[in-house]
Design a protein around this nucleic acid. Structure first.
Length: 560
RNA sequence: GCGCCCGUAGCUUAGCUGGAUAGAGCGCCGGACUUCGAAUCCGUAGGUCGCAGGUUCGAAUCCUGCCGGGCGUACCA
């Protein structure tokens, strides 16, 4: 159990025993106490922990909260000696201040648990899948995909750290109309390269990469495709292009530090017959009907606002049809929970997927979607033009090349995923306070530097020492330790809410506490005992910074 | 029209799922390097948490209704 949870429990016991004692001694009229809470107050002067017992039991005890608090405090029996001070404040809170010694023990834990500090088993080994990016293989990744990649990867890392059995999956939409359009676009460029004058319709992809692909095909095939049946040629181009583009996407993601456990092909759902199987199953359940020549899935039976087409009147299945099979397949693969990460513009799609999951016999509560809002790419405050139509967009690769993967990933995680994000290329490159990634990484580099200096001065072993710990009593030191005790809880919260930005903010906060401490006190002093204590302290900080950055997929440099 | 998300300091935002005096950063102004990395720190100013009700000991947080913004509302993916 984590330190904070243990302390809360200890204090809760202390308080409940005191209240009971107060009743036995006749100070309080009732032995009944509602559920009380012990929490860490936001404001330092409100103590290390506080409880609301006096307020919540006012009506039962028929006494003012302040009076109750007085009696409770009077009867506290602190045999372990953890309480330094207990006082009544505000409307009746009991604020408890804890001895420094209690805080020092946390440092030992951090050193011992090391890379595992903050880990938990709340996931209890349950299988969970996080599917993200899943960009269509019709073009390179852009910044928006980068945000999804950063969030998805961080969520997966955090879940893993919290004891889930996590799989990261990328769904490849290698079937359907867009792929044909891709093939057509490449094929037209191919023909153009033989001198033909081609009119490109609006729905064709027109980026430079399309021309590159057509050139590659020409190198492989010469003019072979010109003589072939047109549909066959387009299909060939589509397959060739999709494969190349996927390879490029995979490479870009690797460059960004994101690797998937599984790449899942949409086409494979057709090849294995899973799409037909699911649809036939639904037909036998009578939740698919025909109207206007198309086949409709009665999603309204499951809470959707209107029914949805799964087979068009031309006989072709819709994207939704394979998606039904896909989500069913996820559960069949044994995942207890399934997380999809989508762009926020797809939110209207959620009810029908939930409907299909329910219809397939699984609870929709096992499925959740994380929606990612838009990224506005800026340069020095001015919007960067991002037109997919003309193909003039800035790719994720471009952005990483310019600002680095660390800065990009960190900035993507500095905001709640459901609020739009301004990504400014100029600030991402700055090496100042404007740019939070450097602010946090700087702590790691700075501590590394101090430790190196210490080593040069002959300090090799840094370990727990009672005398050294007694020296850690500056307010900034205690504050730093308190911040570190909050790390496990932060990670757990971040996992439960699937909000990685909580870790980001935590790290910025810890960095701030460290920088403040550093500027006020020297670590390497003339007093070897004090120095030992302080080194022990800051190395703990270093470990948490490293651990936290690792969850976010950002490096922790020894030097910068 | 209906559905989802969002309105917090000049700007960008946090707020631990109901707690006390709403925290930061940027920007402005003023300070701190002969000692461990100034890529840092310290200080001042700046708020009716969109508006109006409701729930209770207690609301930025939960409920209702407005106002303002974004997105969605395909036999596209």
């Amino acid at each position: 159990m984590e330190f904070i949870a243990i302390m809360k429990q200890k204090i809760k016991d202390l308080i409940l025993n005191a209240s009971l004692d107060a009743y036995k001694k006749g100070d309080l009229p009732s032995s009944e106490f509602p559920d009380i809470e012990v929490e860490v107050p936001r404001i330092e002067s409100h103590g290390d922990f506080s409880t609301n017992i006096a307020m919540v039991s006012a009506s039962v005890q028929k006494m003012s909260p302040k009076k109750i608090a007085e009696f409770v405090i009077k009867h506290i029996n602190d045999s372990d000696g953890i309480v330094a001070k207990a006082e009544i404040a505000g409307p009746g809170f009991i604020n408890i201040f804890v001895n420094n010694l209690s805080w020092h023990t946390v440092l030992r834990r951090i050193h011992e648990e090391d890379a595992g500090y903050g880990a938990s088993d709340v996931g209890r080994g349950r299988k969970i899948q996080v599917e993200f990016v899943s960009s269509n293989p019709t073009g390179p990744l852009h910044v928006g995909h980068g945000r999804g990649a950063a969030v998805g990867d961080a969520v997966a890392n955090i879940l893993l750290f919290c004891g889930y059995d996590v799989q990261k999956e990328y769904y490849i939409n290698d079937s359907g109309r867009q792929i044909r359009t891709l093939g057509l676009s490449v094929f037209l460029r191919y023909r153009e390269s033989f001198g033909e004058d081609i009119q490109f319709s609006d729905d064709c992809y027109q980026g430079d990469y399309i021309r590159d692909l057509s050139i590659q095909i020409k190198e492989h095939k010469g003019n072979d495709l010109l003589g072939q049946d047109e549909e066959e040629a387009i299909l060939y181009c589509a397959r060739f292009a999709a494969e190349k583009i996927i390879a490029g996407i995979r490479e870009d993601l690797k460059f960004f530090g994101v690797e998937f456990d599984n790449w899942f092909s949409e086409q494979s759902l057709y090849d294995s017959g899973k799409v037909d199987k699911v649809l036939n199953g639904f037909r036998s359940q009578d939740i698919i009907y025909e109207k206007d020549g198309a086949h409709w899935f009665k999603t309204t039976d499951f809470g959707d606002e209107k029914d949805r087409v799964v087979v068009r009147n031309n006989g072709q299945t819709t994207y939704f049809a394979s998606d039904i099979a896909y989500h069913k397949d996820k559960f069949e693969r044994g995942f207890e929970r399934v997380i999809d990460i989508w762009g926020a513009d797809h939110h209207g799609y959620i009810p029908r997927i939930k409907a299909s999951i329910e219809a397939a016999g699984y609870s929709k509560d096992r499925f959740s979607v994380i929606l990612i809002q838009l990224v506005n790419l800026l340069r020095g405050g001015e919007p960067v033009a991002m037109s997919t139509r003309s193909g003039q967009f800035v790719t994720l690769k471009d952005v990483i090349d310019e600002v680095g993967a660390d800065a990009a990933r960190f900035i993507f995680l500095t905001r709640h995923h459901e609020s739009p994000l301004d990504f400014d290329l100029e600030t991402a490159k700055k090496k100042t306070n404007d740019n939070p990634v450097f602010y946090v990484q700087y702590v790691h580099a700075r501590i590394s530097s101090i430790v190196r200096k210490g080593r040069e001065a002959g300090i090799e072993k840094i370990e727990w020492d009672d005398r050294a710990m007694d020296m850690l009593k500056e307010p900034e030191e205690i504050n730093l330790i308190k911040t570190m005790t909050a790390y496990p809880e932060t990670v757990k919260c971040s996992a439960e809410s699937m909000e990685p930005h909580r870790v980001t903010f935590y790290l910025m906060n810890l960095a701030s506490s460290f920088h403040a401490y550093y500027n006020k006190h020297r670590v390497l002093t003339d007093d070897p005992v004090l120095t030992a204590g302080r080194l022990y302290l800051i190395i703990a900080v270093k470990k948490i910074i490293r651990n936290g950055l690792a969850l976010l997929g950002v490096s922790a440099p020894e030097k910068m």
